[in-house]
Design a protein around this nucleic acid. Structure first.
Length: 668
RNA sequence: GCGCCCGUAGCUCAGUUGGAUAGAGCAACGGACUUCUAAUCCGUAGGUCGCAGGUUCGAAUCCUGCCGGGCGUGCCA
């Protein structure tokens, strides 16, 4: 376990058992203490609650039969207070079953802990800087920003909950070419009235217009001819391959066939891309107004770069426009963050580092780390063919430069132990090179980690795009999810004998369900893999979804409202928990495992461990709900015991969901 | 060409870092509402974990080689 003992310190059953095993292992073989990681929750309930698999590897080390070692371990093990007598099974598994009395004691300790539900604070808190979301202002946020924003926010909340200091910093793109575009657009195409009415909408229109025109010229002059050329070359190549003599060696034959197929596939792909581009061009050509503008601004690409360069070199007009536009753009993305219920400690954008970039490069040169190559300033790193370019040959700086300046600032300002970059996996090479450069450049002991994630795909398995090939806008995405949620909420509520919710309540519930669905769907997938975005799946009431968790919570809460019971009174009252039914015991154990789930989240920065835990908890609760009447329990003591279990379940779900950044509803 | 990632039920995905008989949810089939929210629950069926070797008490997981896919790869971010 990579961070065990460093980051992880919250008290939980697993770490308690591991520390007991540590003592036992030390007694047998002091060199085998790392085998505590082989104490794990059981896969199957029939083997007990936890199992220790240390005896097999240890037996090998000591050249003794594993079952004999297992017996020695059990003899040396002091767990009598929390477990039933351990059992040895199979080749040497040690199976552990927790004592009901111990579970009950642990639950009793959790009950009064309003804030942390028994999850201890890290013994050695660390300082994290979290870099996530990072949208470009002046460019509408799109589906690609979901993952970074949502995963980063959840990690931030979980790390803080465990007692670490976390500085969240939104590295906003506020200094790039997109400003050149809107500056150019403003100078040539602005509609003063629209701008006065709604500056953001007008700027957004200008951005779209200019980027469309730039793309038009780039496509017609560069991309399409290049693709046409490639098609010709490919065709020639294919002809040659077809004409080539077939090798006699079977293996070589296969290789040739494979290359042929690949070449054919590539050709088809190129043709498809070309078709797509021609369609985009046609959009402009078919619109007389657009076509005229396009013709009038044939050099728009260069002009945009010139506006950007002017901004960067301190041109007064452009600087003034930038200062005028920025607040409106920031307000726009701020609105999206409010809706997502996400906030940051800092939002130090690219512009913040603007005047430091020159210094970064000269420092690298002074240390002989950066050298000139083909006119650009480059850091050549061992093990990489391509250099890490910190200054272009035209003198402009790149995101590599900004990232280095940013690391420097963060080190100076916050002295973090770790900086996490929640950025998609396509940038992994950039981060590898960035980290390698920082290690050469700075002496500080700092852990830099690229918390990468996969792509959001459409139902066709291709990156999620609109029909016209643009990125799907985030606002529209959220709207649609909420709209669909509202339909589902209304339908289901209306179908009840007596509807529960007012129209206003339905809207509030739909907002939380819709936004929650998107967030949860993202968090529930292993972040390293791509996933298919599906409204139907994420809004489903069954399965591992936000709506299911919210429903489970509402169902628990309804017991209290139906029974007219104050949950706080149950917590403070003298309630003795009873675990006679298997469903009661299973639920109790599930509740106690929250901190194990949280440890696993921070271990590899994967929130899906928490969603998996919550889903398991909710499923366990369902079984309890079916089998164990609460309000109609046989006697008052049993009723109170079950009420307390219900309350703990609701609190655990609510806490877990809050750490994921998802809001609960009392009724739905 | 080189580098990184991936391939698990018809579909969408988990799989606690090498553990016991590989798990969920959809979809299919069969059950459970005068009983705390049935927006639910329970059950059945569904698998050569891409293929072939190897490592060992034990492999979806580690190694090698194939097959198939994604991404990246000198002046975008």
């Amino acid at each position: 376990m990579r961070l065990a003992g460093k980051t992880i310190s919250s008290m939980n059953i697993l770490s308690e058992l591991r520390s007991r095993f540590l003592t036992a292992l030390e007694a047998i073989d002091p060199g085998a203490v790392e085998l505590t990681t082989m104490v794990l929750p059981s896969q199957d309930a029939k083997f007990g609650d936890y199992q220790a698999n240390c005896a097999m590897p240890l037996g090998k080390r000591l050249s003794k039969p594993p079952r004999e070692i297992a017996q020695q371990l059990v003899d040396a093990l002091d767990v009598a207070d929390l477990c039933e007598p351990p059992e040895i099974a199979g080749p040497g598994f040690i199976n552990l079953k927790l004592k009901d009395t111990w579970i009950i004691e642990q639950l009793a300790q959790i009950v009064p802990d309003e804030k942390h539900l028994g999850v201890d604070q890290a013994q050695t808190p660390r300082v994290f800087v979290l870099d996530y979301s990072s949208p470009n202002v002046a460019k509408p946020m799109h589906v690609g920003h979901i993952r970074s924003t949502v995963i980063g926010d959840a990690l931030c909340k979980v790390l803080r909950f465990l007692g670490h200091r976390v500085i969240s910093d939104n590295h906003i793109g506020d200094w790039g070419t997109q400003f050149g575009m809107i500056i150019f657009g403003y100078k040539h195409f602005v509609d003063e009235k629209s701008f006065a009415d709604d500056a953001v909408a007008e700027l957004s229109r200008l951005y779209k217009l200019v980027s469309q025109l730039v793309a038009y010229h780039d496509t017609t002059r560069q991309k399409i001819p290049a693709l046409e050329q490639r098609i010709v070359e490919h065709a020639v190549l294919l002809d040659q391959m077809h004409d080539a003599t077939i090798p006699e060696d079977l293996k070589e034959q296969k290789k040739v066939n494979k290359r042929l197929r690949q070449a054919e596939g590539q050709l088809a792909e190129v043709r498809q891309t070309l078709d797509g581009l021609r369609k985009q061009v046609a959009v402009v050509d078919d619109n007389p107004q657009l076509a005229t503008i396009a013709a009038e601004h044939a050099e728009i690409g260069a002009a945009v770069l010139a506006e950007t360069a002017a901004l960067h070199s301190g041109d007064a007009t452009n600087r003034a426009l930038w200062e005028q536009f920025l607040p409106a753009c920031l307000a726009e993305i701020e609105a999206t963050y409010r809706r997502l219920n996400v906030s940051f400690d800092h939002a130090l954008g690219e512009s913040f580092y603007e005047d430091r970039l020159k210094g970064v490069v000269s420092d690298l040169v002074q240390r002989d780390m950066a050298v000139e190559s083909d006119g650009a300033m480059c850091v050549f790193l061992e093990g990489y063919d391509a250099p890490f370019i910190v200054q272009k040959k035209d003198g402009a700086f790149l995101y590599a430069t900004t990232d280095l300046a940013t690391v420097e600032h963060r080190l100076k300002e916050w002295s973090p132990d770790t900086i996490l970059y929640v950025v998609d996996h396509r940038q992994s090479l950039h981060f590898e090179q960035l980290f390698a450069t920082v290690r050469l450049w700075r002496d500080e002991q700092i852990a830099l980690e690229h918390v990468s994630f996969g792509t959001v795909l459409g139902e066709d398995g291709r990156p999620f795009k609109t029909r016209s090939g643009e990125a799907v806008g985030l606002t529209g995405l959220l709207d649609e999810a909420v709209e669909r949620a509202f339909k589902i909420v209304s339908q289901n509520d209306a179908a009840r004998p007596e509807p529960l919710l007012s129209e206003e309540e339905r809207h509030n519930v739909a907002e939380r369900i819709g936004i929650g669905a998107i967030k949860y769907a993202d968090l529930a997938h292993n972040r390293t893999s791509d996933y298919v975005f599906s409204y139907d799946k994420m809004l489903a009431m069954t399965g591992n979804t936000a709506a299911y968790m919210q429903y489970s919570y509402a169902r628990v809460r309804s017991i209290f409202s139906r029974g007219g019971i104050d949950a706080k009174a149950i917590r403070t009252g003298d309630v003795q928990i009873v675990l006679d039914q298997p469903a009661e015991r299973a639920l109790a154990l599930a509740i106690l495992r929250l901190s194990e789930a949280l440890d696993r989240v921070v271990e590899d920065y994967r929130p899906n461990h928490l969603t998996a835990y919550l889903f398991d908890l909710a499923s366990t609760y369902s079984e309890f709900f079916e089998n164990c009447p609460v309000l109609k329990a046989d006697n008052e003591a049993l009723k109170n015991s079950r009420l307390l279990l219900c309350d703990l379940t609701a609190r655990t779900i609510a806490l877990g969901m809050t750490l994921l950044g998802i809001q609960m509803v009392e009724r739905m």
